[in-house]
């Protein structure tokens, strides 16, 4: 039933087309040569025509599909060509050559940002390794498993510690302090943390760890060494030789969670 109705509708529509949408249909049916002449006068008309054709071609699946599509293509192509032409003309009238710098053709002073951009462009063209696009040290994303429902296993914890050149103890202390839970290393040197955590959580904390305890503030290189000198942690950069002290890891206040009368 539904199909029949649709067909009926289509059948109704199709005979309408030439009569009701007189002008538009005409334009389509006309020869390409005539088309161009007509379209010179009415560019918008052509656009609407192509739209209308699209619509009809979508509606009539069986009838006239081939015809419509061919017509559509022709008219569309013609319209497109024409549009391109006009666009080109307009552009030709306006700005002749593409501007390389924003201050070209005007008398104003250069702005700092523009000049900076220019310098960097030149630098990037000539010797890219100096342009500050330093290769980033890639950290693999943390792999996290759930052990039961209440524990989370951080599988590649050791790998990440090695890539950061940090003691696993230190990293672990930081992670546990930030997560506010307890945890330990298991037999395969994986970190088992109490509580449920998503890999994203670990990633965020590792990011913070790297910013605070790995990255050199002077040159932003992760090539640093963390050493302990009489109770204070110092970060020494291998690249630029600068050093700084870093805050000790403090767990801070940890509220009592769980049953009350387990302790004491």
């Amino acid at each position: 039933m539904a199909d029949d109705e649709v067909k009926d509708e289509v059948a109704e529509i199709t005979p309408f087309d030439p009569t009701k949408k007189k002008k538009k249909k005409k334009v389509v049916i006309q020869d390409p040569a005539d088309d161009s002449v007509d379209k010179l006068a009415e560019k918008t008309e052509a656009l609407s025509v192509s739209d209308g054709l699209d619509f009809t071609s979508m509606k009539k699946k069986k009838k006239k599909q081939v015809e419509a599509s061919t017509l559509n293509e022709e008219s569309g192509d013609a319209g497109d060509d024409f549009d391109d032409h006009i666009d080109g003309d307009e552009e030709g009238d306006g700005i002749v050559l593409q501007q390389r710098y924003p201050w070209e053709g005007s008398d104003r002073d250069y702005e700092y940002e523009e000049l900076l951009g220019r310098v960097f462009n030149i630098l990037r063209e000539n010797n890219p390794e100096l342009a500050g696009d330093r290769r980033r040290t890639v950290m693999r994303p943390p792999q996290v498993l759930r052990e039961g429902t209440k524990k989370t296993v951080f599988v590649n914890f050791m790998d990440l510690c090695k890539t950061m050149h940090r003691q696993p103890d230190h990293v672990m202390a930081f992670l546990l302090a930030e997560l506010g839970t307890s945890g330990s290393l298991d037999g395969q040197q994986r970190l088992v943390v109490k509580g449920r955590f998503a890999p994203k959580n670990f990633e965020g904390i590792l990011r913070r760890y790297i910013n605070e305890y790995v990255i050199c503030l002077g040159c932003k290189s992760p090539d640093t060494i963390l050493s302990k000198e009489n109770r204070l942690f110092f970060l020494r950069c291998e690249k630029c030789g600068s050093g700084r002290s870093v805050a000790p890891i403090k767990a801070g206040f940890v509220a009592r969670v769980g049953r009350r009368n387990t302790g004491t």
Binding site: L179, G180, G252, F253, V254, V257
Partner: peptide, 18 residues
């Protein structure tokens, strides 16, 4: 001022302001 979170059982949590 440290604002921390602590997981409790299930999806519950605590926020501490220290």
């Amino acid at each position: 001022v440290h604002i921390r979170i602590q997981q409790r059982n299930g999806r519950k949590s605590l926020t501490t302001v220290q």
